[in-house]
Design a protein around this nucleic acid. Sequence first.
DNA 1: AGTCAATATCGACAGATGTCGATGTGGTGA
DNA 2: TCACCACATCGACATCTGTCGATATTGACT
Lengths: 115, 115
Amino acid sequence: MTVGENLLADGVCMPGAELTVPAEDLAPLAARVKVLGDPTRMRIVQILAANGSVCACDLEEPLGLSQPTVSHHLRQLTEAGLVVRDKRGTWAFFRVADAEVADLASAVRGLAARS
Amino acid sequence: MTVGENLLADGVCMPGAELTVPAEDLAPLAARVKVLGDPTRMRIVQILAANGSVCACDLEEPLGLSQPTVSHHLRQLTEAGLVVRDKRGTWAFFRVADAEVADLASAVRGLAARS
DNA sequence: AGTCAATATCGACAGATGTCGATGTGGTGA
DNA sequence: TCACCACATCGACATCTGTCGATATTGACT
């Protein structure tokens, strides 16, 4: 739907139309979405979701990546709040932060919702 | 189960545990999520959602970016199917592909859902 | 034709990002 | 204490990505 008072005929550009700029800082949201945008990390989330709580050492093989790399991705996911770290003794177990992922999904859907 | 070292008491790592690997190719999904993961592109989607159909020329100012850069982001969004291009004469109008964004959001939520 | 305006594309550049090997850290158990 | 294991961090590297100016391309209107 067109906006502004200077809407001309149909299908014409309207420069001064003051686009609605919510100025809502979606940088944090974008950052979390970006973290999920990596195939490897998305795969990790999928594996965690399917297995509940998984030891980091069990991720290297299915992912086909080195231990430092897996650790790096787990760090990104954890810092984004999409995954929860649970260290037990020598091992580190990870699980999906269901609520956070759900919130993110809902925020994304909300983006496209007409205001 | 030959007790081996795997699968012991509670809270212990279980290496041979055959993680559920759906092998579902989430590369395409990751790619679309990645496109949305950029703050500028997310902002574009937000603006389009709020204004319906917007001319590309009206995006440069609110975004504070050059015309080639805006064009580049619009291309990414369009190729990802998150936005629809509608060229009228000299201008190019864009609008959010509501259904696609909704699908993406729902797919993301589905990721965290325990199988 | 010719000119102007809006977009798209190209080429180049700086900065971010994923990856690895090597090394550090901390807990477990002989 | 020592060795071993899982994990985190570091340093380096190649690649990807966002950005811009310059240059096409396309459409509209004399």
